[in-house]
Design a protein around this nucleic acid. Structure first.
Lengths: 128, 128
DNA sequence: GAAAAGTTTGACTTTTACGTCAAAGTCAAT
DNA sequence: ATTGACTTTGACGTAAAAGTCAAACTTTTC
C-alpha cells in the first residue's frame, strides 16, 4: 500500500487537467510531495482533491476552499476566533440552505418540463 | 396596480447593480419596456429577474439561464426536439442532484465544525 | 428654472479559474 | 542512445460576469 498517484492518474480519475492541479498547488490548496521535480500524490492528497472538487461544484471560490482547509488544518484555539468561526459557519449554513432550496425548486420545475414533454409527445406522436 | 418598477428599486430589492440588469438585458434575458430611453420594469420582469437570480445562485451560466427561459417562452413542438429537451432535462437533474448531495455533506461538516467550536469554547472559556 | 438625483450608453477594466502554448527536463522501453 | 510518453516551469491568453468611469440626458424637487 501507501501508493503514489501520478498527476495524470488523478486528472483522469477526476476529469480535470494537470493545469488545474498545478493551479491548486500554486494556490496553496494541496502540497504533493516531490521526487526531483515530479509531483507525487498520496491518498491524503487525493482525498483533499475530492473535497476541493466538491467545494467547486457547490460554487465555493478558491479562497473559500482554502479557508475551509485551513480551519481543518489548524482549528482556532482562542475564544474570539472560535466565535468568529461560528459566525462564519452560520453564514455559510444559510447560504447553503438557500442554495438547496433553489435546487429543489428547480428540480420540481424540471419534473414539470419533463411531464409537459411526455404529454406533448403522446399528443403528437401517438404510436411513435 | 400594474405598477412600474424603476431600475434602482429592483437593484435595491435584490442587492444587485444597475450594470447587472443592463447586462441581463444585453444578454437577452429580460426585455423591460421603455419610456423614452428609461427602462420600465413590470412585475413580470421582476419575477423573471427572481428566477434569473435563482439560476445564478445554483451556478447556471447566463447561456443556460437563457436557454431555460427560451423553453418556457416557446416550448418545442417537434418530437425530435422534445426528446432532445428531455435528455437535457435528465442531465440537469443529475447535475442538480449531485449538487444537492454535495451541499448536504457540506452542511453536515458545518455541523461538526460548530460542535467542535462549542466543545472547545466550553473547555477554555468555562464560565465566560 | 436651477440644482439634485437618477438614468443611459459606451468603453474600458477586473476577477476568477483555469486553457494554451513553448522549451526543457525525466524516465521507460526499444 | 534514441524514441516516445510524461512532466515541469513560465508566460501569456481567455471566457464569463460583471465593475468602473465618463459624458450626456431626464426627471424630480425645491
Amino acid at each position: 500500500m501507501n501508493k503514489y498517484y501520478t498527476i495524470t492518474e488523478l486528472t483522469r480519475e477526476f476529469g480535470i487537467s494537470t493545469r488545474t492541479l498545478r493551479f491548486y498547488e500554486d494556490e496553496g490548496l494541496i502540497h504533493p510531495e516531490r521526487r526531483g521535480r515530479t509531483r507525487l500524490f498520496r491518498s491524503a492528497d487525493r482525498r483533499l482533491i475530492m473535497e476541493i472538487l466538491r467545494g467547486r461544484r457547490i460554487g465555493f471560490t478558491i479562497a473559500e476552499i482554502r479557508e475551509i482547509i485551513q480551519v481543518y488544518k489548524d482549528p482556532p484555539g482562542e475564544a474570539g476566533q472560535l466565535r468568529l468561526l461560528m459566525k462564519r459557519v452560520e453564514e455559510k449554513r444559510e447560504e447553503l440552505q438557500q442554495k438547496r432550496k433553489d435546487i429543489e425548486e428547480t428540480l420540481e420545475e424540471l419534473n414539470n418540463v419533463e411531464e409537459a414533454c411526455l404529454t406533448r409527445l403522446a399528443e403528437i406522436g401517438v404510436g411513435t
